Simulated assay, not measured.
Amino acid sequence: MSSNIIIFTGGTFGILAIVLGAFGAHALKKVLSTEKLASFEVGVRYQMYNALFLLLLGFNTNVFISNVKWAFYLATIGTILFSFSIYLLALADPLKRNFKFLGPVTPIGGLLMILGWGSLLIAML
């Protein structure tokens, strides 16, 4: 693994967060309830937080340290599980799909993100 992979992942998450945030603010405002739109925005916000986290990680750390690798994997998988499950849950009605099985996935993703940040802290000690 190299810093470039971490930076690429962070950049990809950042771009997607901006695109999805704009999509939510404009296109989804007309089709989602206020509650669902707020939930969608939480997914975008945490995706961007972790995009910035990954960029900082990639630019400022030694990727050969085991805990830095763990921080990358945990934050990346956590972001995918957390944010993308929220997106699908919020869009279930307009897509006419039942994504309720993803309900337990969201907190697991959140826990993985927390563990990713924790791994960075441990790596820095």
Rank of each mutant, 00 (worst) to 15 (best):
F101P: 06
N98A: 08
K29E: 13
T76W: 02
I18S: 10
F99R: 04
N67R: 12
N60I: 02
H26C: 10
K96M: 11
S3R: 05
E35V: 11
T34E: 09
S33W: 15
T12D: 02
L74H: 03
V19E: 11
I114L: 13
L88A: 10
L121S: 13
F53C: 08
G103T: 15
L102R: 04
E41G: 08
G109F: 00
Y49V: 08
G21K: 03
T76D: 02
A90P: 11
F72W: 10
I15G: 01
M124D: 00
G78K: 06
W117T: 09
E41I: 05
Y73T: 09
S119I: 02
L120W: 04
W70C: 02
L57D: 04
A25F: 11
V68D: 02
A51P: 09
E35L: 13
K36N: 15
D93Y: 09
G110I: 01
M1S: 14
I108A: 14
L28T: 02
L28W: 07
K29T: 10
F8N: 11
T61C: 10
K100F: 05
M113Q: 15
L37H: 07
V31Q: 15
L55F: 10
L20H: 06
L57N: 08
A75G: 11
T106Y: 01
G43F: 03
D93F: 11
F72M: 07
S39P: 00
W70F: 06
W70S: 13
I80E: 01
N50R: 06
Y87C: 06
P104D: 03
Y73P: 00
F84V: 01
Y46A: 02
A51I: 01
L32Y: 12
P104F: 00
G103I: 12
L52Q: 05
T79A: 15
F53Y: 11
I5K: 15
F99A: 05
F40T: 03
L95M: 12
I65Y: 04
G116I: 09
H26V: 07
K29G: 03
A90H: 07
S2T: 11
I114K: 13
Y49N: 02
G21A: 12
F8M: 13
F64Y: 13
L54H: 05
F64I: 01
W70R: 03
L115K: 04
L54P: 01
S83G: 03
S83K: 08
L55Q: 08
A25K: 11
A38W: 05
V105A: 03
F72K: 04
N67D: 12
L115M: 07
I77T: 12
F72V: 10
I122A: 04
N62M: 09
W117I: 04
N50H: 15
S33K: 11
I15F: 11
K30T: 12
A38V: 05
P107D: 01
G110N: 08
S66P: 00
I18C: 11
N60C: 14
V19R: 06
G14E: 07
E35D: 14
I77G: 06
F64H: 12
G43A: 10
K36A: 14
K29R: 13
Y49C: 00
